[in-house]
Amino acid sequence: MKNLKRYFRLYKVLIAQFIKVVLQSKVDFLMGLFGFFFTQVTGIAFLYLIFEQIPSLQGWTLDQLIFIYGFAQLPRGIDHLLTDNIWKVAWWKVVTGEFDQYMLRPMNVFFQVIAEKLQPDALGELLVGIILVIISIPKGILIIDGVHIALFFVSILAGALIYTSIKLFFATMSFWVKRSGPFLQVAYEMADFAKYPIEIYAKPIQFILTYVIPFGFVAYFSASYFLVEKSAFSTIGMECIIAVILWFIAYGYFNYGISKYESAGN
């Protein structure tokens, strides 16, 4: 408990210094935000173009798909905001030996990785997500009651943890391959496709998005809980279970990877 308090305090100190640096360059900040915002806008435009041609996609209406799309941005944005520095581990911290720094300080290594940086660009994604969810409310497509609202927030947090775990897992590979950026990139991009109803894909792909790189739970399965009558356990419950299991696998693998760390210069 005392430990937790210390880390909380440290997090504040470290993030505060990061924010000071970011504030030195406001234009950069706005451009990054705009970049991510714009990327999401093209995704919505894609949906509109498709629905010019078809009335519904396997039973889903445009309004429902827009909610799924927007909902998917929320866990993604939260993870992106808080743990973006994991990318640096995958791309160059390990291969250049910059990772040494984490090993020399009396703090948990994973904590140091994420406390080094916030990604303000993620606010672009969060903004799109929040807007799309809010405009979905008056459309009458959502089931709104106390339980659903509570689970809405639970689901977002669990989803973010799934994102973080998957990123951490692929970044950890760099302890062996030195630069695991490409792997992480590919895995992360997979999330884009889980923005659509998973039933449209062939069985093996459904399997992958459900069990291997389970982005299906981040967006589609849990979003559908708010759209149609479904058991909370098979959607949000499973999401939480998967998030926890995935986290332990990724974190364990990360710690194992650290023990294999070779630093640079050899």
Binding site: V27, D28, M31, L33, G35, F38
Partner: peptide
């Protein structure tokens, strides 16, 4: 601009 990453995204 030094911050071309945001523009790369766009």
């Amino acid at each position: 601009t030094t911050y071309i990453f945001g523009l790369q995204m766009v």
